[in-house]
């Protein structure tokens, strides 16, 4: 429920992320099949990646042991902004399931921490408007 609320918000602002050269990828223990159903019912268009054994989730330190409804290991909510060199530039680890990262805050972090990407997104509009025929 809370996850969909967060993911929906990022889907709405996906163009603003892509204009800055930032892709969004969602990761959970759900199988590819479950994620495919979710994407088609909710209309998500960014990649959803499946980590059924929670290996990558563990590597990123966001494991919630036995946090699933039937005691499965799942991911706790967490967001990591990774730059082109593979370095974490920004992260958010909420301590409250209902308080989630907001797209506008992540966009602000991108513009502050990666100024070249911010200008990238500003460049796009005038260039396309004045595009030669």
């Amino acid at each position: 429920m809370f996850c969909n609320s967060e993911l929906r918000g990022f889907e709405h602002r996906l163009n603003d992320f892509r204009a800055r050269g930032v892709e969004i990828a969602a990761i959970s223990v759900d199988t590819s099949e479950e994620s495919r159903k979710l994407c088609s019912s909710e209309g998500y268009t960014f990649p959803f990646l499946s980590d059924p054994k929670a290996e990558v989730i563990r590597r990123y330190g966001v494991l919630h042991p036995r946090g699933g409804p039937n005691g499965q290991d799942i991911a706790r909510p967490g967001e990591f902004l990774v730059d082109a060199t593979g370095t974490v530039r920004w992260f958010d680890l909420t301590d409250d399931v209902k308080v989630r990262a907001r797209p506008e805050n992540v966009l602000r972090a991108i513009d502050e921490l990666m100024p070249s990407r911010a200008s990238l997104s500003l460049d796009i509009r005038p260039r396309s408007r004045n595009a030669p025929l």
Partner: peptide, 30 residues
């Protein structure tokens, strides 16, 4: 990791062409 079509996706692939990526870990299981 596999995407929704079962196709493998690498972090290095997401970062190709000077792109950055926002990884969102979520609980799943609704």
């Amino acid at each position: 990791l596999s995407d929704v079509n079962g196709k493998p996706v690498m972090l290095s692939g997401l970062l190709k062409n000077n792109r950055a990526v926002l990884l969102i870990f979520y609980r799943g299981y609704w």
